Simulated assay, not measured.
Amino acid sequence: MTRAIVITRPQAQAGELAQRLQDAGHAVVMFPLLEIHALADPAPLKAILARLDEFALVAFVSPNAIDATFAHVDRWPESVPLAVMGEGSRRTLMHHGVTPERYQITSPLDTRRTDSQTLLKVLKLDALRGRRVLILRGETGRELLGDALRGAGIEVLQVAAYRRAAPVLTPALADQLRMLLASDDSWIITSSEALQVVLGFAKAVDPEFGVVKLQQKNIFVPHQRIWETAQTLGFRHVCLTDAGDDGLFTALQLRP
């Protein structure tokens, strides 16, 4: 059986990387571990997006937050600066017509670790003190960015733009996972939450050996925090890549 690369991103975010890997001659298996859903009630989000000019900065926590927001925004006001965590989000903004040539976009300088901590290092906190910042995110998530901004004397409003959920472990999905656990594939994991989900799935489909089999897989992660989570959860073969699709692609090209 040909070794494959298992992509666990939500379906909507997996296509570009999958095509790139296939074009390079790799077999690819799609096995999404998270689903992205619209909000049950988007009214609070729409209400705040109608008042963007009240904010000194709008920060997006992920490409999903950007896509969910621009479902309700025809054109971003040029006077409102934006902040993002990494290159994937910058590309998503460009897809929606928000380019560095026309808009002020702040993102981490360290492309290997793109998260709240590295974004905070480049934000001009003194200029934001006493002003309002909007954080657009999922219904759940880390509080570090908001807490740090509040600690610097900045008024912060966090608003959900979408919700995440684990897929239902259907019989067909369970059968696919059993096949993957028995194969010698490499896995791309792009969130700590996905690691938790797949461990639960592995235990469900093979209570005796599923978790152990999964922990022996070669997994590729584009973020230090995911690498740390994987170590804590007992994964034995974890490769920390550079951030974004470029980092993942380069590391997978070099895999033995």
Rank of each mutant, 00 (worst) to 15 (best):
L214H: 02
T106I: 10
I135L: 08
W187E: 00
A204Y: 02
L252V: 08
E87C: 01
L17H: 07
R164C: 00
V58E: 03
H95Q: 11
Q216L: 08
Y103L: 04
P77V: 05
L173W: 04
F70T: 11
Q22F: 09
L181D: 10
S107T: 10
A4L: 02
H223C: 01
T2I: 10
Q104A: 13
G25K: 09
Q22R: 11
R150W: 01
E101Q: 13
Y103H: 09
L52E: 04
V159H: 01
T106M: 12
V122Y: 14
L125N: 10
D147K: 04
H237W: 05
L157F: 06
C239G: 00
P10E: 12
G138C: 06
T241W: 10
A243E: 12
L134M: 04
A38F: 02
A56G: 06
E87G: 02
L21T: 02
G138V: 07
G151H: 08
G151Q: 10
I5T: 14
V159G: 03
L120N: 08
A68T: 08
E155T: 13
E228R: 13
R90Y: 05
V133L: 05
D147E: 15
D245I: 01
V198S: 03
A152H: 15
L199S: 02
L125K: 07
G15A: 14
K121Y: 09
A27T: 15
M30S: 14
G146T: 03
R113G: 01
P256D: 05
Q196A: 13
A174T: 06
T241E: 00
Q196E: 12
A4R: 14
A68R: 03
D206L: 12
M1W: 12
L120M: 14
L33Q: 08
L49T: 14
L39I: 09
R51C: 10
I48F: 01
G244C: 07
T241Y: 02
R91C: 03
G141F: 13
W187Y: 10
L39P: 08
G141D: 05
A174W: 04
E87F: 03
A194I: 13
R129H: 14
L248R: 03
W76A: 01
L39A: 11
L149M: 02
R112W: 14
L177M: 06
A47K: 15
K203A: 12
R164S: 06
D184K: 01
A251F: 10
R163C: 11
D245P: 00
R75A: 14
G151L: 05
V212R: 15
G88R: 12
E143Q: 13
T92C: 14
W227S: 01
L214Q: 10
V6G: 07
H37Q: 09
V122W: 11
I105E: 03
A194H: 01
V133G: 05
